[in-house]
Amino acid sequence: MTDRHLVEVSDATVVYDRDPVLVHADLAVSPGDFVGIVGPSGSGKTTLLRVVLGAVRPAAGTVTRARRVRVGYVPQVETVNWSFPITVGECVLMARAGGRWAPWSTPSERSEVADVLDRLGIAGLEHRHIRALSGGQQQRVFIARALLNRPQLLLMDEPTSGVDVRTRHDILHLLSDLNADGLAVVVTTHDLNGIAAHLPHLVCLNREVIAQGPPEEVLTADVLERTYGAPMDVLEHGGMPVVVDRMSASNVIRLRRRAQ
């Protein structure tokens, strides 16, 4: 590991119930990086993210972290219990669960929460229930929780899963702004065109790393077919790669209205 890496995963293999879900994976994240991990369902994206986080220990290989590196983690919003009785302020303050024993928040903590909410464009929502927010605001609450401890590296699992196009744009811009301020960001995503094609560095994963590099290098028909196991074409639009399913007689399922 070079001194400038925040986290470096080398040759990592993870096994669940004798089933290898990640094989010989490498990933290095440095300050200011913005990395997208793409791949089909079951390809090991979340597992690789959790290896970087330190929540999963690989059966083989090494994970090296910079000393005292601070990492923030934003889970998939689908895993959140939105009906739990909790306000935005209470949720963000969970980031301090390990530090302070007294249940009540200090004035400085309340000020920090207000600042991070303001930075993310959801100021003044501290007393709202988390369910009483729009999809984009909900995602920002959990980003706020991850940012409260001023991490150097932010890990997000499927940040745009289940959100509309406008919210996806907003979240991508927000992450881009945070990254421009020096925060290293690693996201997993299914969204090749909406998210992955916009990122500076991609890791194509299907249990093993198929390819990694800038989108224009790794979003190729060959890499995508090896990653997803399905034929895809890559077009160019406005200087950016656009991935499309390859239309052929063999993989198009035609649905016809049944004759009356």
Binding site: G54, Y73, P75, T79, V80, F84, M94, A95
Partner: peptide, 9 residues
């Protein structure tokens, strides 16, 4: 609220 994230935090 969130045992998975609490653990990794």
């Amino acid at each position: 609220f969130d045992p998975e994230v609490a653990e990794v935090s």
